[in-house]
Each structure stands twice: as C-alpha cells, then as structure tokens.
Amino acid sequence: MRGNPGAPGAVASFARFVLFGGGVGVASSTAVAGLAGLMPWAVVNALITVASTLLSTELHARFTFGAGHAGWRQHWQSAGSAMVAYVVTSTAVLVLHLVQPSAGVLYEQVVYLAAAGLAGIGRFLVLRLFVFAGGRTRTMEWVMRPVPARETGATVSLSFPVPAL
C-alpha cells in the first residue's frame, strides 16, 4: 500500500510519530533502566534498540505514514537510522558518566531521553522523506542555460526525484 493517497500529512505524521515513537521510547527507557543492573548498559541499550526498532518501524509504516506493512527494505533502512540513534544515546550517556561518574538513574534517564528525542527528530525526517516516501515524490527540474556572451543555443536539463514534505 505504498504511495497511499490517504496517507497522513506532515503534521499528522509527526504527531503520530511522537505518539508511537515516544511510547516505544518510554517503554524502551524503562526496560533499559530495569535491565542495566543485569548486564552492561551499552549491551542492554543495543538489545532494546533492536527490539524497539522492529516494533516502531512496523507501527510507523502502518499508522504514522500509512504505508501498510513494512518490508525488509524499510526495516533495514530504519535500522540504519536507529543505529545512528543508538550511537547518539550511548555517546550522551557515556559523556554523562565521564563528566559525572556518580550520576544516578534519574540523570541517566534525563540524558538518555533528551538524546533520544533529538535523534528521534532526525529519524522522523529520514523515515518520512526517504524510507516511507512512497508516491509522495515530485520531480524538481534544474535548467542550466548558456552564458549570454557565448550564445551556442545549448541547454542542459537535470531532473531528479525530490521527496515531498
């Protein structure tokens, strides 16, 4: 069902992204905090990131962007953006522990959620503009004309798809 003309607009998509992505993010954050005592934080974050990415990609495909079931291509592309989010959240928590070695769970969660929120905005843009763009692309044409002093009559036209917001 890609390219669904009934797919939500940018504002509705973002609201749904925040709802579904935020819900999965809060659940993930809770799971990371609960499991961090059993194994290293980075390992827990990696495991939870994989599970939450699978879930959120499917939710975003169906409800956020109206694209139907997410295929393998969308899952792999979403995983790439999730990997960037993993690096951002892990780096943020690592920096917190370097700056404040005795930071407790509360500070850890604040830093984690803030980093996840920033990474989430980037993920929304990637998912909307590239992963689930479907039929929402338009063509932008650039025309380069010769300089008037060198009248040759030649014109070069470049055309490429541009994702629509």
Rank of each mutant, 00 (worst) to 15 (best):
16 R>G: 12
16 R>K: 14
16 R>T: 12
19 L>H: 12
20 F>Y: 13
20 F>S: 01
20 F>E: 02
21 G>R: 00
23 G>H: 05
24 V>P: 04
26 V>L: 04
28 S>Q: 10
29 S>W: 04
29 S>M: 09
29 S>D: 15
31 A>P: 08
32 V>I: 12
34 G>K: 10
34 G>R: 10
34 G>N: 06
36 A>Q: 14
36 A>I: 09
37 G>I: 09
37 G>D: 15
38 L>E: 09
39 M>S: 09
39 M>H: 06
40 P>D: 15
42 A>I: 10
43 V>I: 10
44 V>I: 10
44 V>A: 03
45 N>W: 05
45 N>I: 06
45 N>S: 07
47 L>T: 00
47 L>G: 09
48 I>Q: 02
48 I>V: 15
49 T>R: 05
49 T>F: 08
49 T>P: 02
50 V>N: 03
50 V>D: 05
50 V>M: 07
50 V>Y: 06
51 A>D: 00
51 A>V: 12
53 T>L: 01
53 T>S: 02
53 T>C: 12
54 L>P: 00
55 L>R: 00
56 S>M: 07
56 S>I: 01
57 T>A: 13
59 L>I: 07
59 L>N: 03
60 H>N: 13
61 A>G: 14
61 A>K: 01
61 A>Y: 08
62 R>V: 12
64 T>L: 13
65 F>L: 11
65 F>Q: 11
66 G>E: 09
68 G>I: 04
68 G>H: 10
68 G>E: 15
71 G>Y: 05
71 G>S: 05
71 G>I: 07
71 G>R: 04
72 W>F: 08
74 Q>K: 03
74 Q>H: 01
75 H>W: 12
76 W>M: 09
76 W>N: 04
77 Q>G: 13
77 Q>S: 08
77 Q>L: 12
78 S>D: 13
78 S>A: 15
78 S>K: 08
79 A>Y: 08
79 A>N: 08
79 A>C: 07
80 G>F: 12
81 S>P: 03
81 S>V: 14
82 A>N: 11
82 A>D: 14
83 M>R: 05
83 M>H: 12
84 V>T: 02
84 V>Y: 12
85 A>Y: 13
86 Y>G: 09
86 Y>F: 15
86 Y>N: 04
87 V>A: 15
87 V>Y: 05
88 V>L: 14
88 V>R: 13
89 T>S: 14
89 T>C: 11
90 S>W: 14
90 S>V: 02
91 T>P: 01
92 A>K: 02
94 L>C: 04
94 L>M: 14
95 V>E: 07
95 V>L: 15
96 L>D: 02
96 L>M: 11
96 L>N: 02
97 H>E: 13
